[in-house]
């Protein structure tokens, strides 16, 4: 039952990863007979016979129920908004799932609450292969975003920005004392005390994206942030 590629190595689409019937494919790979091949240009993770390929590329997000997303309102209907969540499908947010109560389009204009170009933090309520995703933006931490800075990152890199058990993002928050939220569809919302700290966080995130495939990243980012923050304070 040979394995042809080492753990954490980069694989290309169609690259032979392993041969043997007992390997379990978690994601990003497929099987022909007993051979396992990669589906992506990505990083291979093999742990106890289970195979996962995490793509290194891709600007799109595939909606999953329960994910937190940040979206931009691109259209308003009398009782719902159309929201771009960087997916191949436009999402729908009903006014009642935003306000927590139904809206009467005869009395109330929906654009009073959110208009085209506004940004909303929401959860995916429905996502299947047949219909476009449905959002819910009513509840704690959800709703319209009115301040702070939002940067776009490749959605596939979100797990790396969060880190194992969210260790990376916790560390960045602790060191910079900024509010940061990372959505599953690849937006990072930042609210820092000043522009310099905000810029520093952006640099850190850009570095995580660039070096997502390298080991020991959390420590490198910690060092970078602490040394640069010292410069800012002095």
């Amino acid at each position: 039952m040979p394995i042809f590629v080492k753990n954490m190595e980069i694989v290309a689409p169609g690259e032979l990863i392993a041969q043997g019937k007992n390997y379990k494919i978690v994601e990003g790979a497929y099987r022909i007979n007993d051979k396992v091949y990669s589906e992506f240009l990505g990083i291979l993770y093999i742990r106890e016979g289970s195979i996962r390929v995490v793509p290194l590329q891709g600007n799109f997000y595939m909606p999953k129920v329960g994910d937190t997303v940040i979206g931009i309102v691109i259209d308003c209907n009398p009782v719902s908004w159309t929201v771009n969540i960087r997916a191949p499908y436009l999402a729908r947010l009903d006014a009642s799932d935003f306000l927590g109560k139904p809206i009467d389009p005869n009395k109330d204009k929906i654009t009073k609450y959110m208009d085209i170009g506004d940004v909303v933090m929401a959860k995916i309520a429905v996502a299947d292969r047949v219909t476009n995703p449905q959002l819910i933006a009513h509840g704690k931490g959800l709703g319209k975003i009115t301040h702070g800075k939002i940067i776009a990152v490749p959605p596939k890199k979100v797990p790396r920005i969060l880190g194992k058990d969210r260790s990376m993002i916790k560390m960045i928050r602790d060191i910079t004392k900024a509010e940061i939220r990372v959505s599953n569809n690849g937006y990072v919302w930042i609210k820092a005390d000043n522009k310099t700290v905000e810029q520093l966080i952006i640099l850190a995130i850009q570095r995580i994206i660039r070096e997502a495939h390298l080991p020991g990243l959390t420590e490198k980012i910690r060092e970078m942030l602490s040394s640069k923050l010292k410069d800012v304070e002095s």
Binding site: I72, I74, N84, L90, D115, I116, G117, D118, V119, I145, T146, H147, G148, K149, I150
Partner: peptide
Amino acid sequence: IRKEILSNIE
């Protein structure tokens, strides 16, 4: 249009 609407925040 979807690709091109810039967020009001930005």
